[in-house]
Design a binder for these strands. Structure first.
Lengths: 231, 231
DNA sequence: AAGCTAATACTCGATTTCGAGTAATCGAGA
DNA sequence: TCTCGATTACTCGAAATCGAGTATTAGCTT
């Protein structure tokens, strides 16, 4: 809700990492990778260093020493400040307690699904399901491995949650594909029909919608309810 | 997969809109709003105009007329080009067929859940569930309304999918909260214990992990498997 | 002992993204 | 008929984001 001074989720990971011990930026990045947290929070070097600078300017972290070994680039070690701990706690509180609006790719795609022929959409959804199944299998295998090592679940629940989301997406895609295949999507048999008319007669979808009686032999009560801008 | 010349999802919506008919940017924005597509694709004016400019430079759309009514700002009407139609089709193909890595807020939060006391985490998850239930109820009511108007489902499946994701999130949160409440999260009773020790003895969580035998009376086999950087 | 790859540790500038601001007009009510 | 809030239509510059590039060293092989 509150606009943070440094809003990049990577900044949250930096605060979380420095909350455990002081480190230099590159060390933070390797730690995030070795713990697999980079699967949950996008890590990229450009952002890492600019985010660290921004956090320092905001007083959430401070440089505690700069070491130079041989001719290698300097490593500046940062520590979290009290303000930084407070910010991290506040941020985590928000991330866990208050859902923020999120935009998913599939949602964007679904918003324009009528633009494709139903059969093509089914094809693509099936392709997606295959890819999702592969991702789910990979993560599940990783979980199996961690469980076999008795590595506590609390350290990888974020990955478990990811599987949950992927599975929901997979199941929705499968259900939708099925409904389209059987034309079981309420009130949208006209979708297929429209695409066939467009291909046959060389007209546009809006032509069909403008004159449903002529082209489809039926009238749409909902068309009168739709605001003119929406068309 | 492919790096698009104009990558903002809003550009996809612009192409989709102009695919139906030529419009000026502001008109696109009102149409997206009246159709509720702005719930699936983030719409913001700054991005809209810069995205339109970028699409024009890339040859995906072109200005077809500039009208000025009275003293109002000029309205430049854009039309989609053949290249633009191809780009839209390619983009929609990708959005539907190929899942891209996505980062969710809750996932980021879960990655740092051990930083809070278990009881606090349960509290926050419960708060989240209440908020999610409200969002789900609101969307469900909207769907009920559209169904009563016989407005075809195909025009709002993206919203249906959103409910699916929200529900998955809700259910995961509920399950996790339950498992934490009953300490039923495999191998992580030590999590609660550690927070209690930290509060009592003024030590840090890493101190506990460094000497589990001393503080918790048990040894952790997985600790030996963890790479040193990960600590 | 030379050569090569991988890892270390960052830098830089070009885009992108954003959100607040502006300025005119319309329409409903006092 | 005057006013005031909503709508129309867009602009602008600051800030964020990114990803490719760089330079050094360690370690392994041949």
């Amino acid at each position: 809700m509150v606009k943070r001074k440094v809003g990049n989720p990577l900044a949250f990971a930096v605060l979380g990492s420095l909350g455990e011990r002081s480190m230099h930026p590159y060390e933070i990045s390797t730690m995030l990778k070795s713990r697999g947290k980079d699967g949950s929070i996008k890590l990229n070097y450009g952002s890492l260093y600019s985010v660290v600078t921004a956090l320092e300017k905001a007083g959430f972290i401070e440089a505690v020493e700069t070491v130079r070994e041989g001719n290698r680039p300097e490593r500046t070690v940062y520590a979290i400040t009290e303000a930084g701990r407070a910010e991290f706690a506040d941020w985590l509180t928000e991330l866990l307690g208050s859902p923020e609006k999120e935009y998913s790719q599939l949602e964007a795609g679904l918003a324009y699904v009528p633009a494709f022929h139903p059969d093509r959409v089914v094809e693509l959804l099936e392709q997606r399901i295959v890819a999702l199944d592969a991702q789910i299998a990979e993560l599940t295998a990783a979980h199996e491995f961690m469980r076999s090592k008795e590595f506590p679940r609390i350290f990888w629940i974020e990955s478990e949650f990811r599987v949950e989301l992927l599975t929901a997406e997979r199941n929705y895609a499968e259900r939708l594909a099925g409904e389209i295949r059987t034309d079981g999507l309420e009130g949208s048999a006209f979708w297929r029909k429209t695409h066939e008319l467009v291909a046959e007669l060389g007209i546009t979808p809006s032509d069909v919608l403008k004159n449903p009686v002529k082209y489809l032999g039926v009238d749409f009560p909902w068309l009168k309810e739709v605001t003119p801008e929406a068309l």
